[in-house]
Design a protein around this nucleic acid. Structure first.
Length: 294
DNA sequence: ATCGCGACCTGGTTGC
DNA sequence: TGCAACCAGGTCGCGA
């Protein structure tokens, strides 16, 4: 489940290997990953063929491959997406969805010199689309906030946004318009570290609490980034097909029934937003029911 | 404007 | 053993 650190690993890996590459051919093997592209699979392929990759950039969990420093291929890995660099002779992956033939670059991954960039995605929550004039920032994701690792991230604006909302603080953390890059795993980890229950309304947090929560999110993500992405999920691999390791650093996520690393109380799992939340019932007490009226 | 729910997907696991 | 139900979850569209 790629969140910000994993996506950054992919972005950096691509950036290292494909800058200057000429895209000689594009093959869309399944229509779903290009569903967001109004031009359809053929239209997508036609506009990408013949272009030169000039940069690979990222905002939150989106990244994009700049074409001639003007347009871009916008990408999201969803839950199970991978962007692999492979020798053209390598066997197709079971869930290969889009193939990009690259020329003019060499890599250890392609001893023959015929390199392919492959979008592989089992569950197909991810996708690619052509972003016109999107080289610097695709307009379709201009609404996404910066992430906590971004030097231009506005911390005060984040604190204000949290404290002005009545919805659950975990929901706010997952709202990419407020802060990007945080998914279910890192949200639970940041909340555990900050000793805050995810269902506490944002407007019931103090300024310092909101600020501390943010710094925990930043910490857990930069730790993961340093490790090369979390990915205890075997579906996630970095750009060269290599898995990262980080699972041992998780204190809450996926640890139902195991003792809290701080106090020993069994970690609990609860349904939240149609998914699971993991928390320590002692360190992160459930907020009292918000009273009606008054 | 803001909020919150459900749909979209596949494949591994669980339960009967 | 076989099959159905469930679960993972980021994003978006929609109704409230």
């Amino acid at each position: 489940m790629p969140e910000l650190p994993e996506v950054e690993v992919v972005r950096a890996g691509l950036s290292q290997h494909v800058l200057g590459a000429h895209i000689s051919h594009v093959q869309v093997l399944h229509p779903r990953p290009v569903r967001r592209d109004p031009a359809g699979p053929q239209g997508f392929a036609d506009r990408v063929v013949g272009r030169t990759i000039t940069a690979v950039r990222r905002r939150g969990k989106y990244f994009w491959i700049a074409l001639d420093e003007r347009d871009a291929v916008l990408a999201h890995l969803g839950m199970s997406g991978q962007m692999l660099l492979k020798d053209a002779d390598a066997a197709d992956e079971r869930h290969l969805r889009v193939r990009f033939g690259l020329e003019g670059v060499t890599s250890d991954s392609a001893p023959t010199g015929r390199l392919e960039m492959r979008f592989v995605d089992q569950r197909m929550f991810g996708g690619l689309s052509y972003a016109e004039d999107g080289a610097l920032l695709p307009p379709e994701i201009a609404h996404i906030a910066r992430d906590p690792l971004d030097s231009e991230f506005d911390e005060d604006a984040f604190v204000r946004a949290v404290r002005r909302r009545s919805s659950a603080v975990k929901r706010i953390l997952l709202n990419q318009d407020v802060v990007s890059g945080i998914g279910n795993i890192y949200a639970d980890e940041a909340l555990w570290r900050a000793r805050i229950h995810g269902e506490r309304p944002g407007d019931r947090l103090s300024g310092p609490q909101a600020r501390e929560l943010l710094s925990h999110a930043r910490e857990v993500m930069s730790h993961a980034l340093a490790q090369g992405g979390t990915s205890f999920d075997a579906l996630y691999v970095n750009v060269n097909g290599e898995s990262g390791y980080f699972d041992r650093s998780l204190h809450a996520y996926g640890r139902e029934g195991e003792p809290c690393d701080r106090c020993g109380t069994p970690i609990r799992r609860a349904a939240f937003m149609n998914r699971s939340s993991y928390f320590c019932p002692r360190c992160q007490p459930v907020p009292r029911r918000p009273r009606a009226g008054r």
